[in-house]
Write a protein that binds this DNA or RNA. Structure first.
Lengths: 201, 201
DNA sequence: ACGGACATGTAACACGTTACATGATTAA
DNA sequence: TTAATCATGTAACGTGTTACATGTCCGT
């Protein structure tokens, strides 16, 4: 599901301007989707071209006209058609976990700090989501919000319960690394070990 | 952290070929990162150009030569330098949640089926991760693996505990939608309501 | 006979980000 | 005066995916 389709879906739940859609992305959907102005405005333009949405221009004093978009009947049909397809795999790219994967190459202090920061961020997100929850949300939004809340809580709990393990291991590893650095390669992995034939740098 | 940097990190933990790196991505790191051949091979070529890795060519009967990459000292320095930087925000794009957000526009059967499929997929992932866990993993890998395991379990638990709520709401909503469809717009959201001036389709 | 694992690589394409351009209002 | 909110949009750029090109060996 690309930005264009999600915008269409958002408009299926009510009229909105590009700016309002952006706020929705960052305030309510940020735990499973994100989109910048640079993708939202062109998306709305394409949808308009395709006749899937229309817009009304609202003049504002001293500001660019606000364009309030509304989904058309053709748009509703197209969206439902898209929704029916089985969703693809979730795309996740976590710099945080990718960094911790190499925790043994960092100082314990750095690892601990990174985790502390992340925990604080999750706490803030959880508070924000818990506050907005159980109001006048659509069933889908409530479900998805609850999902995010649950996941963030599980993440925080894991980090708080296991950070000592990683930080501790990192400490213990420090000496090993000093030793390993002398020998050409430290290889705890069962990967291509053999035959350095013609090394080309 | 881009594919190039992660490849460098993987090589910091041991030598590997492009093909082996790809397997690592899909078998061990798939819960927080993914990369295709089309990004891995060019990444290794760029790293070689930059002198951050070298490779030894291993002739294989009736197969393209296997290139086993090894990180250089310059590569280790560059990688540690990168690791030290605070990780950016995680990028998540969930088609699944984006679809369920509009659960009220789907039939209860469709919603239920999507959730059932997802639950089954997570169960499979959990079994695979639980099996590979607690072996000869680096501290970082064990930590990251445990993180993924915990998160997937929380997701499954949430889906199993709350699917009935969404499916039920969807059922109840069916009648409302039939009614709402007659009036021009059903708008449960506090968004731009007013002034349809010059609607342009 | 067919698909999957092994093995590397390229090129076209899609998609989205970042930064820029413009400009008023309001709160710290 | 500095930053944030409101408001829309474009263009360059980066990054990664998909599909293609090539070919063997092995299991069923």
């Amino acid at each position: 599901m690309d930005v264009k389709t999600l915008c269409l879906g958002i408009l299926a739940h009510g009229d909105a301007s590009g700016y309002e859609i952006k706020k929705l992305f960052e305030q309510k959907y940020s735990h499973f989707y994100e989109a910048s102005f640079g993708s939202i405005y062109p998306a709305l333009a394409r949808l308009t071209e395709a006749g899937l949405v229309s817009f009304s221009q609202q003049a504002q004093s001293k500001r660019p006209d606000k364009k309030v978009y509304r989904i058309t009947t053709a748009g509703r049909i197209a969206f439902l058609d898209d929704l029916g397809k089985m969703p693809g795999r979730d795309r996740i790219r976590s710099d945080f976990l990718a960094t911790l994967l190499f925790g043994d190459l960092l100082s314990p202090g750095q690892v601990d700090k990174m985790i502390a920061i992340r925990v604080a961020e999750y706490h803030a997100l959880i508070d924000a989501m818990a506050a907005c929850n159980t109001k006048g949300l659509t069933p889908g939004h409530a479900f998805v919000n609850g999902f995010g809340l649950t996941v963030y809580r599980a993440m925080v709990a894991y980090l708080e319960n296991n950070r000592h393990a990683l930080v501790g291991q990192t400490l213990l590893g420090a000496r090993d690394h000093a030793a390993a650095a002398k020998s050409a390669q430290a290889q705890p992995l069962p990967r291509s070990q053999p035959a350095p034939e013609e090394m080309q740098t």
